[in-house]
Amino acid sequence: MGIFPEIPVAEWITAATEGIQEGLKPIFTFIREDFGDFIEVFAEDWLMNVPIWLFIVVIAVLAFFASGKKFGLVAFTVIGLWFVANQGLWEELMNTFTLVIFASLISVIIGVPFGIWMAKSKPVENILTPVLDFMQTMPAFVYLIPAVAFFGIGMVPGVFASVIFATPPTVRFTNLGIRQVSGELIEASDAFGTTGTQKLFKVQLPMAKKTIMAGINQTVMLALSMVVIASMIGAKGLGQTVITALQRAQVGPGFVAGFGIVILAIIIDRFTQNLNTQRGDNP
């Protein structure tokens, strides 16, 4: 090893993780049990109890309005969802949907305020930018390890890992959107005597809405891409089917479950994109 002894980075991280695990045990337990129960209730008692046909009709109607009263998305939604049900993967789809919804919601709830903070302060931006880079480039599998340490196995660590992986685009795009608001509009706002909060809610956020929504769309897509990885630590859903197929070398079932994920991805993507319209845009 020569002059420099090996630096025990791995030991430090393990120690730190254990420290956090011990220190925040009550919080982790609460999240694992109560939040975990809630997710389970949401997926199994609510979503899965809705008759499949009703679920498809509701989504189709929403698609009709979300896409500006066109039928393309409606047709895709109906056929896609029917196909998944037909393949006997409905429960898996509902679990995956639940994981994506919760991971995305938490990401947005955390990401938007951080994005705002970053936009308002240059030092915060300087600190957060490398942190976000780190979060996005670190292989997603790595997050599974502390996730299991903190939350055991199941949906909750899956959501946790997905949140870490999926939050950065929302933070980045919120920051970008706010910083992109033209200087003259900010001056106009200041010239009329707005407080910081008024400026944020009346000018900056509405103006940044499109960019923020693009970030949220990215976040949702990243959360979806975590589905298979999260199922390695016991998150239920289509990912689990894929993993099982992989372990047994079953090409057919693997692809069918994969199709299910693609269908869900396309539906969610089109929904979030179509909702992304801004007042005052020229048609």
Binding site: L185, A188, K209, D281
Partner: peptide, 8 residues
């Protein structure tokens, strides 16, 4: 350049 708020 007017600086009107386009979303209002």
């Amino acid at each position: 350049r007017f600086a009107l708020f386009p979303h209002r």
